[in-house]
């Protein structure tokens, strides 16, 4: 079963994402901030097949988390999908430059649309939205 690491600090949103992903047949690893997510990524094998990342997070924001992931040889191959309540174009561009596979604004998107994108990425689909 493919597994997805979710980084989302808002409990209701995390619940919805988790529920929807599990329905779609994924195994989910829910985390509430970048630190917790990093802890889940160190040492444990196998690595998740995708990271679902929020931007506004406690301790470190999505961009900082992403920078850490992409600087580690072991982790940088994991595809990342950012799902956030708007971030400025510079931040979005910076994340896309680091190798984000898709970027979504939460309130603007149906969850189903995002899940479809996730499925296509995990199943070796095209990169970037």
């Amino acid at each position: 079963m493919k597994s997805i690491l979710i980084v989302e600090d808002e409990e209701p949103l995390l619940l919805a994402i988790q529920h929807k992903l599990e329905d779609a047949g994924f195994e989910t690893i829910p985390t509430r901030d970048g630190k917790e997510a990093l802890a889940r990524l160190t040492g444990t094998e196998p690595l998740p097949d995708l990271i679902w990342l929020d931007y506004y997070l406690p301790f470190m924001n999505g961009l900082e988390f992403l920078t850490r992931i992409k600087s580690e040889e072991r982790l940088k191959q994991i595809p990342v999908v950012v799902v956030s309540n708007t971030a400025g174009p510079e931040k979005v561009n910076a994340m896309l430059d680091l190798g984000v596979d898709a970027y979504f604004v939460k309130a603007e998107r149906r969850l189903n649309d995002i899940i479809k994108k996730v499925q296509s990425i995990v199943n070796g689909g095209a990169k970037h939205e």
């Binding site: 209701p12 949103l13 919805a16 529920h19 309540n85 939460k106 149906r110 969850l111």
Partner: peptide, 19 residues
């Protein structure tokens, strides 16, 4: 406001798609 709005949107969507 946007965070709860997203939650309402997504959960309503899940209910509507009969999840």
């Amino acid at each position: 406001l946007r965070t709860p709005l997203s939650a309402i949107k997504w959960f309503t969507e899940m209910l509507l798609s009969e999840d």
